Structures are given as C-alpha cells and as structure tokens.
Simulated scan of single mutants.
Amino acid sequence: MKILVVDDDPNILELVNIHLSQAGYAVMKAGNGIEALKLLDEDLPDLAVVDVMMPGMDGYELTKRLRDEADIPVLLLTAKGELEDKEKGFLAGSDDYVVKPFEPKELLFRINAILRRYDKAVDIHIRVGPLQINRQSYEVSIGKKVLLLPLKEFELLSVLASKPNHVFERDLLIERVWGFDYEGDEQTLNVHIKRLRDKLEGLPESIKISTVRGVGYKLEVTS
C-alpha cells in the first residue's frame, strides 16, 4: 500500500513518514503540490495525505487535481477546524480530514477507515509461500487443503499475510480487525493469535506467527 504525503513543513512530513512506515505503508513524500503531481507520473499511490495550507497550490486545489487525474482518496491535514473549512475540503473531493496538531494513531485510524471504504485495506488475493487467501470467497487454502476460519481469525490472518515478515503493532492489528472504536482488551487479540497458531501447526514449518515482545506479531515466512 502506497501513501502520498504532501506537506511544506519538513518536520510534519517526516513525522507522518515515520508513523506510516512503521505501520507497514510505503510512503511517497512531496513538499508541495507540484512535486506531488510529478510523483504521479512515476507511481500511483493508494491514498494521499495532503496539507491544506501550502504556498502556491493549496491543499484544496491539489485535492481536486488528484481526484481528477488519479482518482485516489484524499485525507486533508488542516490547522483549522471551522465548519466552513471542512465543507471546502469535502467539496474539493476529500474523503476525511485531521486537524493539526494530531495524534499519529488518529491519522492511522482515519487512513485505514478510508482504505476500508475503498476496499483497499488488503489485496483480494494474497499468496504467502504455500498459503493462499481469497478475500472475496473468504477461503484459506494450502494446496488442496482448505482451512475453515471464523471471520475475525480470517481477517487477522489476512492482515498479517498482507506483508509477510513485517511486524504489526498490537494496536494496529486491533484497529484493522476490530475497528478503532473497539472497547475490549488486548486479551481478545491474544486468544485469536493462539487459535490461528493452533490451526497453522499442521502446515509447513515455513509459515508461522511469531511474537515480537513488546511490539506485536508477524507472519514469518522462510524458504
């Protein structure tokens, strides 16, 4: 998943870059609207995070261009919270906004919510070694063997498999599977991870769910 981040403040640009990278996203950075549009010639991101107050081309104008030229979802970063500014952003074609200063976790929550609405949170077909996941039919298979998984276990495995050998933070896994407004505790995640491990036990040893103490989990794939 590629995310284009556009902000003329290098500190904000780097802050967003760090948190998105840690969450498993590939980040394309631009310091202004012109740079952002040039990057579209090289690669097409799945979503753009755009600052409103930029010299030259502001975030509203860039949002219109991104929607017209690339048709990608846009989340606006704004220092203003007035209704008029929100309305202007939505009229320009933005999908959501975050008011500065913001909590990085809130930014991640909103990005993932947008991607879910566009059904881009994970690929429809995921292949990890001998493991195949079909997000449309909700089937998990290894060769001719089909695993029957409850919905939350399926979604959890899908997220882990979307980026093999990448460590997903516990909070991020909970948000992606149960939603950012989930009010339960982390024990629910622990239980689902244990159940998945039990079901993956009989599979080739090249695939296993590993714990990274104090951080989260990863789907470890070895050749």
Rank of each mutant, 00 (worst) to 15 (best):
K2H: 13
L4S: 09
V5F: 09
V6D: 07
D7L: 04
N11S: 13
L15E: 10
L20D: 10
A23P: 05
A30H: 01
A30C: 01
G33M: 02
A36W: 03
K38N: 13
L39F: 12
L40H: 08
L40V: 08
D41A: 12
D43H: 15
L44S: 11
D46L: 10
L47C: 12
V49W: 10
P55Y: 00
D58S: 08
R65V: 03
R65I: 09
E69L: 12
E69Y: 11
A70F: 04
A70S: 08
D71F: 10
D71G: 09
I72Y: 04
K80F: 12
E82Q: 14
E82D: 15
E84Q: 14
K86I: 07
K86T: 04
K88H: 08
S94E: 07
D96H: 13
D96W: 10
D96F: 09
Y97C: 02
Y97A: 01
V98A: 08
K100Y: 01
K100P: 01
E103T: 09
E106V: 14
L107S: 06
R110L: 05
N112W: 07
A113K: 08
A113E: 11
I114T: 03
I114N: 02
L115M: 06
R117G: 11
H125V: 15
P130G: 01
P130E: 11
L131F: 06
L131A: 04
N134F: 08
R135A: 10
Y138Q: 15
S141L: 11
I142S: 04
G143E: 11
L148V: 14
F154T: 02
L156M: 05
L160G: 06
N165W: 15
V167S: 12
L172Q: 14
D181C: 02
D181E: 14
E183P: 05
Q187V: 09
T188M: 14
N190F: 05
H192G: 00
R195G: 00
D198W: 02
E201Q: 14
E205P: 04
T211D: 08
G214Y: 03
V215G: 00
K218M: 13
V221W: 10
S223Y: 09
